Amino acid sequence: MAAKKPVRAAAKIDQVPWSGIRPAPVVLVTGPETFLAERASSVLRDLLLGEDPALEVHDLEADQYAPGLLATLASPSLFGEPRLVRVTNVEKCTDAFITETISYLGAPADDVTLVLRHGGGVRGKKLLDTIRSGVGGGVEVQCDELKRETDRIDFVTAEFRAARRKIAPSAVRTLVAAFADDLAELAAACRQLLADEAAEITDKVVDKYYGGRVETNAFKVADIALAGRSAPAIVELRHALSTGEAPVPIVAAFASKIRTMAKVSAFRG
């Protein structure tokens, strides 16, 4: 019988989405979505700067960590400025980083916010388990990929809601379709629309900026072509090829559609 995979114990700290990030002695940022992790880190920095403009920001790479560095940065400062220490590549961290960070969690500095970015994998599991057990008074920010269309629609809607701007629901769907595979580009498109357009964002506005970016697929090309709409089919074909669709799947889609039509025709005959 195959051995069962060990079940991870439930975390004893708050686990929030990227948009729910908040100050804490230790902030663990996990998940594969790099863009959301960077956005969460920026939001936290802005929150801390709002509390004290004298905030000092230090960036470290856990895979290049030098022993004693965390203790140096977390030691009391001369003028008592609050500090934000951001650590990336924790999934590749050195043994010294794991040991010293676990030791630091036993007594975090009062004026230091330690942000640990872990992109996934088993490296550093002991450190993550320690944080999740509640040692250090941390919070975990989960940055999962937005795989579903509804998730990306919610993301765009939240972007415009935060800016107190209106966007038509159909325009949201069009925008999401134009950047289905790149969340960073989708966010950049939202920022451009917010900066360049003063009125409500409609389908017409989105089409003006990104109409040529709306992604397509092989079966959509085949459907339009077999409906006898040759000009739109050529446009969709160009879009499909420019967004990475390979020629072979397009040919296969045509073959599949034609076989289906032949079968239906035989039944009708």
Rank of each mutant, 00 (worst) to 15 (best):
T150Y: 01
D110L: 04
R148A: 15
T113M: 01
G136F: 03
E149V: 13
V112D: 12
I153K: 14
L116F: 03
R152N: 03
G137Q: 00
D151T: 09
S133T: 03
D144A: 14
T150I: 13
K125D: 13
T150C: 00
E140H: 03
G124P: 01
E140I: 04
V122H: 09
R152W: 01
D154E: 15
D144Q: 12
D154A: 15
G138P: 02
R117Q: 15
G124M: 06
R148N: 11
V122D: 14
L146E: 05
L127Q: 11
R123L: 09
S133M: 07
G119R: 15
E149Q: 13
E140F: 02
S133Y: 07
V135N: 02
L114H: 01
G136K: 03
D154T: 12
L128Q: 10
R148L: 14
L114K: 03
Q142K: 14
A109Y: 05
K125S: 07
G124N: 06
T113S: 06
D151A: 11
R152Q: 14
V139D: 13
D110I: 08
D129M: 12
T113Q: 11
K147P: 00
L127E: 07
E140S: 11
R117K: 14
V141D: 06
C143N: 03
E145L: 14
E149N: 05
K125Y: 02
I153W: 14
T130K: 09
I153S: 11
T150R: 08
T130N: 05
D129I: 10
D110P: 15
I131P: 11
D110N: 11
D129P: 11
I131A: 05
L127W: 08
R123Q: 12
D110H: 09
G137T: 02
E140A: 10
R123K: 14
K126A: 12
G134Q: 07
E149W: 03
R152H: 03
G120E: 08
G120Y: 07
G119S: 10
G121C: 07
R132F: 07
K126H: 02
K147G: 11
C143D: 05
R132I: 00
T113K: 08
G138T: 01
G138M: 04
S133A: 15
D151Q: 15
V139L: 02
R152M: 07
T150W: 03
D144M: 13
V115R: 00
G134K: 08
R123H: 06
